[in-house]
Design a binder for these strands. Structure first.
Length: 939
RNA sequence: GCUCGGGUGGUGGAACUGGUAGACACGCAGGACUUAAAAUCCUGUUCGCCUUAAAGCGAGUGCGGGUUCGAUUCCCGCCCCGAGUACCA
């Protein structure tokens, strides 16, 4: 029989499901290997050809590892809480759970068609109560923990309470809010419970606090920093504003240093690590206190004295330039601005604040050239030289970073330089080689001048000296600053995990663990209440023993921040995964997914994992050892060109792409599914839409050629290619191999179906190797020839190398070469073909399973077969003629004999007349040998 | 602006640590089979020159230079494209 991919694929997909071929146990004599895909959000649109790219790669990898004797965990599930289902619910009234269920069914059907080797018995869904029970449980652990800097790990809040009871607040070095109290043990014990709880909230790893948040009015919810792009929401693109609100946050900043350090220990793409480094944004510098100059004094020397409470703290990465400070700048929102503005300057300052408030976030970012600011009328004292310097406000200083105040050194910082020029402030050079005629010079070379005790020192010594001086005076210290902020954790939405918290005396309390999961209640409609509370406020009778529940839900990233552990033990109702399961699977060996999660999911997951490790609930510091980003598949749109008549109206005549220059036309997206190799199927086009029924065409060479453009894949551009259609036409094995053949896995590329025929032809040729002309199965038991063994072992080695390097595209090419060679050799020998089936089975599993059985093997054993061992002997070249150059110039095939151990000049005997001609009687000066081959002779 | 990728035929892309550039596939052209078409198979396909032909010669991996017997690969300078990021003190 000819290659009947439909029957074959259906048969094997059913076989795998029925026999649970890929079900994996939590213990085995084999070494473990965990291959994970980023689980999808089940959207209504279903899968397009871009989605499976990473899944196919990980499936090939998982199947390969299985063949190489590993116990492979390769699960799949759904990240099924999220906005689109809720938006749809708002529009239609349909419960998001129903929409989600339907979408999951579609996804499952589509995934099954591609022949993945997932262990579906381990499926998880973040929106199912037996899963989110554990999301809520981990939330509770975070609430019950604080970060002990001394131990550099999270610890139980009870330990902190015990310390407070015995020693008060002294001796605690914690990552916490800034407004913590200092108290003795007696004072603590005397506090009432509510005051104690309020204080503890400042330490907890998830906490409720009034903070400035990104508020998106259109979505009716707050968003985390990574969900906001350029002042607009990532989902939907609605405007986002800053607003102060009581909000749940996660104290991810406690882990900033560990998150940064950990990056050096994991095998991730460098750009992705770089993105996380930037996001964490560590800068090493110093904080310096500038005492506020009291206008009642007449000269600065009266202030030499100890630093009072009346100071402004700045953060700087260049404390060495402190003698160049000629003014200070505060952010307009800085809390000291009102009190430091003198009556004379009040009007100017107020006007400036009003003006900068009016500017949107976007304007402020875009407009970085105009210098603006206002003088407050106050002065501060530079602690190193007691000079009096003026205090300004300007919006180039951001309230959210550092202390919201900077010391301005116009000679070393370009923004300060422009500001100084504009307001006519002095610019003092402080380094001998500094060139500051036209712009600031931030050099670290040279030695200091105009810098008192630092004069003559270099950068390193000067920095150390000035920090020592400031510390001695209590006016500053070395400090590390991070750009990363704590992550906002609450969302004012319905379709998410309820927060397991109730309120008593306005303070949050955890519900009892035995009451988990806290089930998402039913509500009548999915909108905020009339009083502006989140949708959960609509739930009737929803309370905890009469106390009000928290009405926010958790953000989308909550469930995905630990889901890989749940796959290890998905049915466990006592723990999120048993200790035993976690000890066996440890962490993910290979994770494949998109780089768009760099500063979201991938950072939060690392954070939770580190926390779980601190709690002895996980054993590895990093969750994902190796990570590969598959590239995005872009859409490839096709266009037709509609002729415009004299009145400028569109006619029903369409001009082929090559001829558009000769006519007046406009372009129109055309469905890519009625175009093949950029040639329009005219009949299908006429049927495509009613108004094209009588369309006429101006053709070139009898064909209608379409225009092409690369765009995002979207329905409105008619460029969405659905994997179902391709599977129906060519089969899953072809789709799998073609997606790999398309190009390097990590590269973004447009989808293009043009080459899929080639892969299909390859599979047919492969099928034919096992069959005679009449398609009767026929293999020979003869011993293989040298040439046949060479072909086989070339591909065995190539696949090994390529899988290591994730270079799946070149493997597909190599399979084609192998099959072409074996076809030429008319090879139908079992000894060769059986091994070839095993090697190819990771890529094209269905056809290989079928052939495996035809070869007489037991059904279902292929996935765990003995992988053929590569033997380098079969690849040794037996011909001696190879190209050689003389003086790097000419190339020819020569027969040369030489002693490989000592490729000395004497040992080269050149027996070819042509070479003799080139050597021209001279003996060669030098012989260049590469890998035992002469490649060049220098005469 | 900064950081990281990347520029190779008509197209997607090969070329592992410097060693026959363009594998493999698409497309295109020609041919075989066929009443015809589809399918399949075969041949050719970087560009230019030369030749009846076989063959040969020259140029060629964004541009300019360098190192080397030899550079798509390494170094310096520039141009272009993509991604991320940005008053971060």
């Amino acid at each position: 029989m000819d290659y009947q991919f439909k029957d074959i694929e259906q048969k094997w997909q059913q076989f795998w499901a029925k026999n649970q071929t890929f079900k994996v146990d939590n213990d085995s004599q084999k070494p473990k290997y965990y291959v994970l895909d980023m689980f999808p959000y089940p959207s209504g649109a279903g899968l397009h050809v871009g989605h499976p790219l990473g899944y196919i790669a990980s499936d090939i990898f998982a199947r390969y590892k299985r063949l190489r004797g590993f116990n492979v965990l390769h699960p799949m599930g759904y990240d099924s809480f999220g906005l689109p289902a809720e938006q749809y619910a708002i529009q239609t009234g349909q419960h998001p759970a129903i929409t989600t269920e339907t979408n999951i069914a579609t996804y499952r059907r589509q995934l099954d068609q591609i022949g993945f080797s997932f262990d579906w018995s381990r499926e998880v869904r973040t929106s199912s109560p037996d899963f989110y029970k554990w999301t809520q449980w981990i939330f509770m652990q975070l609430f019950n923990s604080w970060y002990n800097k001394a131990a550099d790990k999270a610890e139980s809040i009870e330990k902190l309470v015990a310390h407070f009871e015995q020693n008060g607040s002294s001796g605690i070095n914690a990552v916490c809010d800034e407004d913590i109290l200092t108290f003795t043990a007696d004072e603590w014990n005397a506090m009432n419970n509510n005051d104690q709880q309020e204080e503890l909230l400042k330490y907890r790893l998830t906490y409720l606090r009034e903070s400035t948040v990104n508020w998106c009015a259109a979505l009716g919810t707050v968003l985390a920093n990574d969900e906001v792009k350029d002042g607009f929401s990532e989902r939907g693109g609605y405007p986002v504003e800053q607003k102060k609100m009581m909000q749940w946050s996660m104290r991810i900043t406690a882990y900033a240093e560990r998150l940064l350090q950990g990056l050096d220990t994991i095998d991730w793409p460098e750009p992705l690590k770089e993105m996380q480094r930037n996001w964490i944004g560590k800068s090493v510098g110093a904080s310096v206190k500038f005492t506020i100059y009291d206008l009642r004094f007449t000269n600065a020397t009266d202030h030499q004295s100890p630093v009072t409470d009346n100071y402004i703290e700045v953060f700087t990465t260049r404390v060495d330039t402190i003698f160049g400070v000629t003014f200070l700048v505060l952010a307009p929102e800085h809390e000291l601005v009102p009190s430091l503005t003198t009556p004379e300057q009040k009007a100017t300052v107020d006007a400036y604040i009003a003006q900068s408030k009016k500017k949107s976030e976007l304007d402020r970012m875009a407009d970085t050239k105009t210098v603006s600011g206002a003088f407050t009328g106050s002065y501060v004292i530079n602690p190193v030289n007691n000079e009096r310097v003026p205090l300004y406000i300007a919006d180039y200083v951001l309230a959210g970073y550092g202390t919201g105040a900077v010391m301005a050194v116009p000679s070393g910082d370009q923004r300060d330089y422009l500001f100084a020029k504009h307001f006519d402030l002095p610019i003092i050079p402080i380094i001998d080689i500094q060139k500051i005629e036209t712009e600031a010079d931030p050099t670290k070379e040279g030695t200091y001048i105009n810098s008192d005790f630092m004069n003559g020192l270099n950068y390193k010594d000067g920095t150390a000296k000035v920090i020592e001086f400031l510390e001695g005076k209590g006016a500053g210290k070395a400090k590390v600053n991070f750009r990363m902020r704590d992550a906002i954790f609450g969302r004012q939405r319905y379709w998410g995990e309820p927060v397991p918290v109730y309120f008593k005396d306005n303070l949050p309390h955890l519900i009892d663990e035995k009451d988990l999961p806290l089930i998402l209640p039913e509500i009548d409609k999915y909108l905020p209440t009339e009083t502006g509370e989140p949708p959960l406020g609509r739930a009737t009778g929803w309370n905890y023993n009469g106390f009000e529940y928290e009405l926010s839900t958790m953000p989308g990233w909550a469930g995905s921040s630990f889901y890989w552990y749940r796959y290890m033990d998905p049915k466990n109702d006592k723990e999120f995964a048993s200790k035993k399961a976690i000890e066996y699977w440890k962490n993910v060996d290979l994770y494949i997914g998109g780089s768009e999660h760099a500063t979201g999911h991938l950072l939060y997951s690392r954070f939770w994992n580190k926390f779980l490790k601190d709690m002895n609930l996980a054993i590895e510091e990093e969750p994902f050892k190796k990570l590969i980003n598959q590239g995005m598949i872009q859409g490839r749109s096709n266009f037709v060109y509609r002729l415009i008549d004299d009145e400028g109206r569109g006619t029903n005549t369409f001009v082929s792409h090559g001829l558009v220059k000769e006519y007046k036309t406009y372009e129109l997206h055309v469905d890519v599914n009625i175009v093949e190799n950029d040639i329009l199927d005219i009949n299908k086009f006429k049927q495509w839409r009613e108004d094209f029924k009588n369309a006429e065409f101006i053709l070139e060479n009898g064909k209608y050629v379409c225009g092409v453009e690369i765009e995002k894949m979207s329905k409105s551009k008619f460029n969405v290619v659905n994997p179902d259609d391709l599977i129906a036409k060519y089969g899953a094995d072809t789709l799998r191999m073609y997606e790999m053949f398309l190009g390097p896995l990590e590269q973004s590329k447009p989808w293009n179906t043009n080459g899929i025929e080639g892969v299909f032809k390859f599979l047919r040729k492969f099928w034919k190797l096992f069959h005679d002309e009449q398609f009767n199965f026929r293999v020979s038991e003869e011993a293989p020839s040298k040439a046949e063994l060479k072909s086989l072992h070339k591909i065995i080695r190539k696949v090994e190398e390529d899988i290591d390097r994730f270079s799946f595209n070149t493997s597909v090419s190599s399979f084609m070469i192998a099959v072409n060679e074996l076809t030429d050799l008319k090879c139908n020998k079992r000894a060769i073909l059986q091994d070839l089936v095993i090697v190819l089975s990771s890529y094209a599993p269905h056809i290989c399973e079928e052939l495996w059985v035809l070869l007489g093997n037991e059904a279902g054993t292929l996935s765990y077969a003995d992988y053929p061992k590569f033997n380098p002997e079969y690849l040794i070249e037996d011909e001696f003629a190879y190209p050689i150059s003389i003086n790097g110039k000419m190339k020819m095939n020569l027969n040369i004999s030489l002693s490989l151990d000592a490729p000395a000049i004497e040992s080269v005997v050149v027996g070819n007349a042509d070479v003799q001609k080139y050597l021209d009687g001279k003996s060669p000066k030098k012989v260049i040998v590469v890998k035992g081959r002469i490649v060049n002779i220098v005469v």
